[in-house]
Design a protein around this nucleic acid. Structure first.
Length: 276
DNA sequence: AGGGATGTTAGAGA
DNA sequence: GTCTCTAACATCCC
């Protein structure tokens, strides 16, 4: 499910759940979720204090400070399509791949679980001081949020390619954090035809995108920080302007929202008011 | 039954 | 080397 706003929410959940706690147990119902780490590696960290939790692109980072002289480590969580961290309060998650048991003073233990129905998600373990290299190896572009970037920055990142602007927005090497929902939402907010080759956009279009991307992030965050996360596929209302709204009236001009496929992924847009 | 799903990446071809 | 696109990963839901 997650794009940048969801991963931001997930990471804040992790920060809240783990604050001031130590890792006191690890369970691994499905070892496929571990990437380059073994259960024994994780067990070697038992007793560590949880430190900072932060987000980079669509990754959550949970820092762990072992007792003694060992260097700080970081758990890196990537949720891919269906992963999410859940707090298990008695009831057990349905597709839990990894469980972390966390203790604080005399309080009851908490169980934070990595739930992932499709099991495409990944959990890595890296020394904290090697995180820059970890992200560099993935050639991850700069985050699209929270730092604001001016129009010319977007031109420089995305403006050289012939690919359609909506497809270019999905390229994490150029700009990190925009997913398939966000790309449609940002094009709608910027009134941009998602089919336009990125290199054909003018300065005004890049300025519009520079506004539209953070506007999408912040609108989605405002929705999702509230009660529960809105999963498009799991009931609840659809919080998006065009995504998943084929056939519905455009919120701006009442024209019908349409769906088509770009790079094997659904694009939703309003042909009447985007890029006429 | 078949198709589609919020992501990423290795590999192929131009 | 660079750019672009495809297939594959694994499972669930409509």
């Amino acid at each position: 499910m997650p794009e940048l706003p969801e991963v931001e929410c997930f990471t804040r959940d992790l920060a809240r759940w783990t604050a001031g706690r130590r890792l006191v147990g690890v369970e691994l119902p499905d070892p496929r979720v571990l990437s380059g780490v073994s259960l024994a590696d994780l067990e070697g960290l038992l007793g560590s204090a949880v430190g900072r939790c932060w987000r980079r692109a669509k990754w959550s980072v949970v820092e762990l400070q072992p007792r003694g002289e060992e260097p700080a480590r970081a758990l890196l969580l990537h949720y891919r399509m269906t992963g999410k961290p859940v707090l298990e309060d008695g009831a057990r998650g349905r597709k839990v791949r990894l469980r972390l048991r966390l203790a604080r003073a005399s309080e009851p233990e908490l169980v934070v679980a990595f739930d992932d129905s499709r099991c495409l998600g990944e959990v890595h373990l890296e020394p904290v001081d090697e995180l820059p290299a970890f992200f560099a190896a993935r050639r991850l572009g700069p985050d699209c949020w929270p730092e604001r970037h001016p129009g010319p920055w977007w031109t420089a990142r995305l403006g050289a390619t012939r690919r359609a602007v909506k497809v270019a927005l999905l390229d994490q090497h150029r700009v990190a954090g925009v997913g398939n929902i966000g790309a449609s939402e940002a094009c709608f907010r910027a009134r941009l035809d998602p089919r336009l080759p990125a290199r054909d956009l003018d300065a005004a279009a890049w300025e519009a995108l520079a506004e539209a991307v953070p506007a999408w992030v912040e609108a989605t965050l405002a929705e999702e920080l509230g009660a529960e996360i809105h999963f498009v596929t799991a009931g609840g209302s659809n919080p998006f302007l065009v995504y998943g709204r084929e056939g519905e009236p455009c919120a701006r001009c009442r024209g019908p929202i349409e769906r088509f496929v770009q790079a094997h992924r659904s694009t939703f847009w309003c042909p009447a008011c985007q890029g006429v």
